[in-house]
Design a protein around this nucleic acid. Structure first.
Lengths: 222, 222
DNA sequence: TGCTGATTTTAAGCTTTATTTCATTTTCCT
DNA sequence: AGGAAAATGAAATAAAGCTTAAAATCAGCA
C-alpha cells in the first residue's frame, strides 16, 4: 500500500511520515504543486493532504485530482474544529477529514478505514491471464490448476504485471510501484525476483507468460 | 464483532458500554454528529443509538446512515412506551427498537438477534471448521469434542479468522476488528495471542488450523 | 481503597524465511 | 565478434515471525 503525504511544514511532515511508514509505503511532497504532480504520475492507495498549504490550497489539490479522474481516497487535514473547513474539503473531493491537532492513532485508523472502503469497490478478489489465476483474498496463485506459493515481492510484481498485461513494464516502473520511493536497489534485484517468479509460474510450462523485452522491460501477453 | 454505541448521557453510555463490551468490541460516540461520522468511517457489525440526542435526532442518524448505503443493523433506544417514537425510528431505518428503561439482558439479546438476522450464514450462533466448533451465544469453543477455555482476545481473534476462513487476514485487519479504535498495540502482541491460541486449539492435533502466510497474515482453511 | 489472580502487552533473543548483492555466465543486438 | 543487457547460482544481509519471561493492566472482592 502506497500513501502520498502532502504537508508543507517539514517537522510535521517528518513526524507523520514516520508514523504512516510503520504500516504503509510513504511518499512526501512538501508543497501543493509537487503533491498534485505526484498524485497524477503515481498510483497511490491513499493521499493525506494538509488543507492549509502555502502555495496551493488543499481543496485545489482535491479538485485537480478528481478532475484527472483519479479516485484515490483523500484524507484531508484541517485546522481547528470549525465545520466550514470540513465541509469545504469534503465538497472539493476529499473522502474524510481530520482536524488538527489529532493523534496519529486516529490518522492511521482513518487511513485504514478509507483504504478498506476503497478496496472493496476497486479490487475484485481474482485476476486471470491464460491459465494463471491470482487470488487476492487467499494471496495465492495457480497455474493450470496447480497452487503455487509466492513470496511477497514476487506476488506484488506479478500482480503489477498482470494488471498491466499486454504492456511493457520497465524495471524502473516495477521499482516505483512495488518498492518505496527513494529506495535504492540495483536493477539486478528485479532480475532476480523475475527469475524466481519464472521458476514458479513458467518453468514447467511450454507457454511462457513473462516475456523479456530486451532493453525495455518485461511483459505478460493475454 | 464491533458495535457502535451512540448515547449522549455519559453515565448511561459508560454503563451500556461495559455491558456490550463483555461480548463485543465497542466504540462510543457522545453526540450525534460524531456517531454519524464514525458509522460512515468504520465498518461496524451493529449500532445502538439513543433516539433522543441533544444535537441531532436519532432518526436523522438512521437516515444518514442508510443514505450512505450502509446496511449495518441499528438498534434504536427510545424513551417511554408510546408507539410514536418506535414507529418513527423504525421508519427512519432502524431495524429494532427498545424502550427505556430496559434490562441489559434484553439489549444484548436483541443485539444478538439483529446480528444473526443480518446474514444467516455469516452470523449464525455457531460456526464450524473441521472438528472445531465455536458457539457465539455462550462464547465457547471445542476441538474434537473437548471443550476449551479461551480468553477474550483469543476468542475474538479466532472468531474473526473463522468468519473469514479461506482468506488471509493480516495483522492490521485483526487489529482493526478486535481492538477498539484508537488503541495502539505493536504487531508482536498479535503474534503472542496467536501463539496462545495455537497452544489451545492446534497443539495436540496433527491438523493445524491456523496457518501463517509469511508477510501477509494468518489463515484458517476450511 | 488496596489486594489478588488473571489477562494483556511489551521486550529481547532466537529461528526461519525473504531479499539483496556479488561474481559469473549466457543471451541479444549491431 | 564485441559490448551491453539479462540470467544464473550461491552467499550475505535483512526482515518477519516465534518464543519466553517479565511488566503492565484489569476485574473481582474484601
Amino acid at each position: 500500500m502506497r500513501v502520498l503525504l502532502i504537508e508543507d511544514d517539514f517537522e510535521t511532515a517528518a513526524l507523520l511520515k514516520d508514523e504512516i511508514e510503520r504500516y504503509y509505503t510513504v511518499d512526501v511532497a512538501h508543497n501543493g504543486s509537487e503533491g498534485s504532480y505526484l498524485s497524477q504520475i503515481n498510483d497511490y492507495d491513499a493521499m493525506v493532504v494538509d488543507m492549509s498549504l502555502s502555495d496551493m490550497s488543499g481543496e485545489e489539490i482535491c479538485r485537480l485530482t478528481r478532475a484527472a479522474k483519479i479516485a484515490t481516497p483523500i484524507l484531508a487535514m484541517t485546522r481547528g474544529h470549525e465545520v466550514t473547513p470540513k465541509v469545504s474539503s469534503l465538497d472539493s473531493g476529499a473522502d474524510d477529514c481530520l482536524s488538527k491537532p489529532f493523534s496519529t492513532l486516529e490518522l492511521l485508523a482513518r487511513l485504514r478505514a478509507l483504504m478498506r472502503r476503497q478496496s472493496r469497490i476497486l479490487y475484485s478478489t481474482t485476476l486471470q491471464v491464460e491459465d494463471l489465476y491470482i487470488d487476492f483474498s487467499c494471496k495465492t496463485v495457480s497455474r493450470a490448476g496447480h497452487l503455487l506459493t509466492l513470496r511477497r515481492k514476487e506476488f506484488d510484481i506479478l500482480e503489477y504485471l498482470v494488471r498491466n498485461k499486454n504492456r511493457v513494464i520497465s524495471k524502473e516502473m516495477i521499482l516505483d510501484h512495488v518498492w518505496e520511493m527513494g529506495i535504492e536497489v540495483n536493477s539486478n534485484t528485479i532480475e532476480v525476483h523475475i527469475r524466481s517468479l519464472r521458476a514458479k509460474i513458467d518453468k514447467d510450462y511450454t507457454k511462457k507468460l513473462i516475456k523479456t523485452v530486451h532493453n525495455f522491460g518485461y511483459k505478460i501477453d493475454a
